[in-house]
């Protein structure tokens, strides 16, 4: 064999071996990721006590309806798919999560739903983008998952196709999210029973159900919440709209009282009488208004606790 041919053959072998190693590594990572996040089964007693009415309230409070519904068009087609969520990585379109068997999640099981919401994986094990706040939702309780699932089953079903995300390369390569989840996502494994009173309840609402932390925290360039700066403020969308620092130290320094927070979360009113627009209005209009008086009180007290 001539030297040139030998070289070519050697190059080809090199390439093939590298491709093989890369493929094996990728398969290992996929297998590891698929099994890394175990999915404990939901207790039978939680399933038996499913409460669809409570679940419907939760779908509102957790922002599922706000994101997965086009609230710009009335009458609303609840959970049939939402408008674009604008991020530095591109635009994400929340899909149809009504129980329609063809274009929604009607063929899913409760386990599939749990896997999606608390483990960030679709029924095939592929990862979701963290625009879907499963990082926060991983702390939801078994009972809340069951109740939300029960609610979805009885809500209207819509044949509305999902809109494909419009994400910039290379973030558009979904399998890359396997690496992201491996490195940055450690599910919290929510409690079996939902906390109902005091700081436990408030922390559960702020950090998981209403996931305030998802907007009001700074993120790295890869979209990871900076762990020791939760609630210290973030920026949203391409326009880099500021989501304020809502740690107690900042709120108290700005002169916020529990009454001010009540007015904001309950009515969208700022202390100067102005009313929020932008992203926060979606929270006050579609989610926070579902907070009962006791929960509202717990949340405002918790946010102002140094």
């Amino acid at each position: 064999m001539t030297d040139k041919l030998k070289q070519k053959s050697s190059n080809r072998s090199f390439l093939i071996s590298r491709l093989l190693i890369g493929t094996i590594l990728l398969l290992v990572v996929i297998a590891f990721q698929y099994t890394r996040i175990p999915q404990p089964s939901i207790a039978a007693e939680s399933i038996a006590s499913a409460d669809a009415a409570a679940g419907a309230e939760l779908l509102a409070l957790a922002g599922c309806i706000a994101c997965h519904t086009n609230l710009d068009n009335y009458p609303y087609r609840l959970l049939a798919g939402g408008v674009a969520i604008d991020t530095p990585f591109g635009a994400f379109y929340p899909p149809n999560i009504s129980a329609d068997p063809d274009l929604g999640i009607g063929q899913w099981t409760l386990q599939d739903f749990d896997r999606a919401v608390r483990r960030g994986q679709n029924p095939d094990g592929m990862p979701y983008y963290p625009t879907f706040p499963y990082v926060a939702y991983s702390g939801l309780s078994d009972q809340d998952i069951v109740n939300m699932w029960a609610a979805i089953q009885i809500m209207p079903r819509y044949k509305q196709p999902a809109v494909a995300h419009d994400i910039s390369f290379p973030f558009s390569i979904r399998p890359l999210m396997i690496g992201w989840q491996t490195l940055y996502f450690s599910p919290e494994y929510g409690p079996k029973v939902t906390p109902t009173v005091g700081d436990d309840r408030a922390a559960y609402l702020v950090n998981h159900v209403m996931h305030c932390v998802e907007c009001h925290s700074p993120r790295s360039r890869l979209g990871v919440i900076v762990p020791d700066r939760k609630l210290s403020g973030g920026t949203l969308g391409k326009s880099q709209t500021v989501a304020a620092d809502i740690r107690a130290s900042a709120l108290l320094a700005d002169g916020w009282s529990t009454d001010d927070l009540d007015m904001l979360l309950g009515y969208g009113m700022l202390p100067n009488g102005d009313f929020v627009g932008s992203y926060m209005s979606e929270v006050t209009d579609a989610t926070a208004l579902h907070l009962g008086a006791q929960d509202l009180n717990a949340v405002t007290q918790y946010l102002l606790k140094p």
Binding site: Y267, G277, S278
Partner: peptide, 21 residues
């Protein structure tokens, strides 16, 4: 509450965003 939502709804669509929490 509808009045309050009208205020924030208009601000959402027709007012530029700044730090309004």
């Amino acid at each position: 509450k509808l009045v309050a939502q009208s205020c924030s709804g208009c601000h959402k669509f027709f007012r530029n965003r700044i730090n309004d929490r």
